[in-house]
Amino acid sequence: MRLGVRIKLGARRMAILTSAVLALAACEREERSTRVDPPVAAALDAVAVMPNGIGGRPPEVHAALGKPYRSNAYQLSQGKQLYEWFGCQSCHADGQGGSGPSLIDGWWEYGPDLVSIYVSIRDGRPHGMPSFRNRLTNDQIWQLAGYIQVLGAYSADTAAPSRSDRPQTRPAENRAPATMAPH
């Protein structure tokens, strides 16, 4: 009898302790970095691209920052806004492609890595992809590149941009792998 009561109390304490720990965990919010120091922004452009323009080495500063443009929800959301603001839909539609290629069919003309996507946006590509070098800052191109990569990623991700306000016309960004997405 006595023992039972003690065990019950223990379970209750455990529950309180667990919820306290869980509540503490909720205190930690994802870092939202809105400002990039100008030297860091300049260094973000130091991508070493392969001679054929596909693939290459990302700038060291991206790793030093903790790869925020691929894993930080705020940066991805900013990328999503830029996608809309800078008229990407006019060729790529909602990601399913129009006069430009689809970004979510799992096929990457110029490679699926961030450097390739960054270079595509910065310098443009043949057959109509314009250069955004003089229209976006380096960190904005990274935000957009991160978003585009999430859009067509091969595996589902925990990091996702904010939801669309409009009805979805394609699978959400943090869905199952792109190639398995319904067409």
């Binding site: 400002r35 990039v36 100008p38 922004a41 800052t137 960190d139 904005q140």
Partner: peptide
């Protein structure tokens, strides 16, 4: 430095 004056606004720091 727009991001120090009004952090989070959508004006980027254009070098």
């Amino acid at each position: 430095d727009p991001q120090t004056i009004k952090p989070g606004n959508n004006m980027p720091l254009v070098p």
